[in-house]
Design a protein around this nucleic acid. Structure first.
Lengths: 274, 274
DNA sequence: CAATAAATAGAATAAAAATTCCATACTTAT
DNA sequence: ATAAGTATGGAATTTTTATTCTATTTATTG
């Protein structure tokens, strides 16, 4: 055996695989070829599965792992599981570590939020179904009046929606709770309500949505995946799972979803006028 | 226990998770919440790893799997390992797919905003200097009172800051322009103003900041790189360059910066009390 | 065409992981 | 305040998975 150091990254792994695969005996070559074409399966398969798919014995596959420079299959699998896990790091643990090292500098925190934001955006891209979004936009584009409800940490999202609708001359009311006025009289049958709330769900939003549903309004909900009460009132639910940093979240995903929706509604209305 | 059929797809899984998570005892709720936010790690982790990250015992985690309708963890893991292969052509491709559904479809727009948000966050991470941020945090942590000014599209950021400060018991006032009252009388020497504005710069924010500077307040500005008027009044400037999509922007970078700053200030104050 | 080295298959063993079980702590209702 | 019913933590057990060993086959070379 010539090489001793194990590849530590995906790049090194591929390079190693390429260098190695000349002049390999039959079964080992089978392994190399199979892996080259199914690299992604390493993370989620067992030796037995992979070797069977490659048409070799488990022991042959083990020898292949060792030739690649790893002590065995588990060590090789590790780099693939970690590469995968990098995209979904465990924030609870990472914060724990950050605190442990005493590193609560503002820029370390910023890095956390940036990373959390990026993750939320990636989640969003894969979790929002085009159909559900399309339905929500269709409902809102047809609304004579849009009511926006979102308090506490959902309020920034609500206010940005309100800003966007104003810019595009779309009739919308932001229910902001100023003066503790009861806003219900403004909600009429046929209007549509955008309700934004996350656990712990704010009572005002739920009540407003429930009331509106009662008088025959459609509800578009921006909420989280877990047990949102808005699911129970037959709302069109857009689920966003934001990644928290400590007790706060960056809202990146939620705001992106909201603004996309607003712009899509604007475009839909413009089209309808022509 | 009422016997339920196990979810067979990701959608069914999420649905099940949502309907289940009401009235769950503590540990099982911890499992549910952890899994809701870390669904993708199921494929590449062991029960021991997941339960440790969720802060529960392996046996609790097993009970959770069974409540979800599976015979055990392995059966649950199976559906994630099987769908893994389809997810691997990952983020780039998913965005591609989202875009492919049509040029002005809501999901294509969403893809644009997601991408813009990611770019902004990357920019932010590399363009904010740790020293400047540190200075801003130091100034704000020492302030007897923080005034927050941000209107129009900066208002969501301002309101989120206000929310965060309230949560952490930090004295702060959001100058929101309700009732067009003149807020200046509330600004006293020694207070600090956070001014948030982007081109085209809103007059109210500039005026407020200028006035405050005049009476001896320090100013922390969140603004864009180009020739912001706030640079002229000797403010501590944090520059964010957001990427626009059409006439709108996703605000991801700005909000992430703001919330990190707020949390850092909170930590600094807590430390000072001990 | 031996003689030797390399490669392989399959069984045996070791290690790790999942799953179950049970004593104990906690809730809830009376 | 107490008993009945749940929920929990931790250890014990079972199952699965990785790894090693060895007899046998296949290739290589003088």
């Amino acid at each position: 055996m010539i090489e001793q150091t194990a590849p530590a990254t995906l790049e090194e792994f591929n390079q190693r695989l390429a260098e190695m695969s000349d002049g390999l005996p039959k079964r080992l070559r089978q392994c190399a070829e199979f892996i080259a074409q199914n690299t992604d399966r390493i993370a989620v398969s067992t030796v037995a599965e992979l070797s069977r798919s490659a048409g070799v014995q488990p022991s042959a596959f083990m020898r292949f792992c060792q030739l690649m420079g790893f002590s065995g299959f588990s060590e090789m699998q590790k780099i693939f599981r970690e590469t995968y896990a990098q995209k979904w790091p465990d924030y609870a643990t990472r914060l724990e570590n950050l605190r442990a090292t005493g590193d609560d500098s503002p820029s370390a925190l910023l890095a956390e939020f940036v990373e959390a934001g990026r993750l939320s955006l990636e989640n969003l891209a894969s979790s929002i179904s085009p159909e559900v979004l399309e339905d929500a936009v269709a409902i809102l584009a047809a609304a004579p009046m849009i009511h926006i409800a979102g308090f506490r940490r959902a309020f920034p999202v609500a206010s940005y929606l309100s800003y966007a609708f104003e810019k595009m001359d779309i009739p919308a009311v932001l229910h902001d709770g100023v003066g503790k006025l009861n806003p219900r009289h403004a909600i009429r049958k046929g209007d549509v309500v955008i309700a934004i709330t996350f656990a712990p769900y704010s009572q005002e939003t739920i009540e407003l949505a429930t009331y509106a549903r009662g008088v025959g309004c459609e509800i578009v909900a921006i909420t989280d995946t877990m047990s949102s009460p808005l699911r129970k009132i037959d709302a069109q639910v857009l689920a966003v799972s934001e990644v928290d940093v400590g007790a706060f979240r960056a809202l990146s995903g939620t705001i992106s979803l909201a603004i996309s929706m607003a712009v899509a509604i604007g475009a839909r209305r413009d089209a309808a006028l022509q």
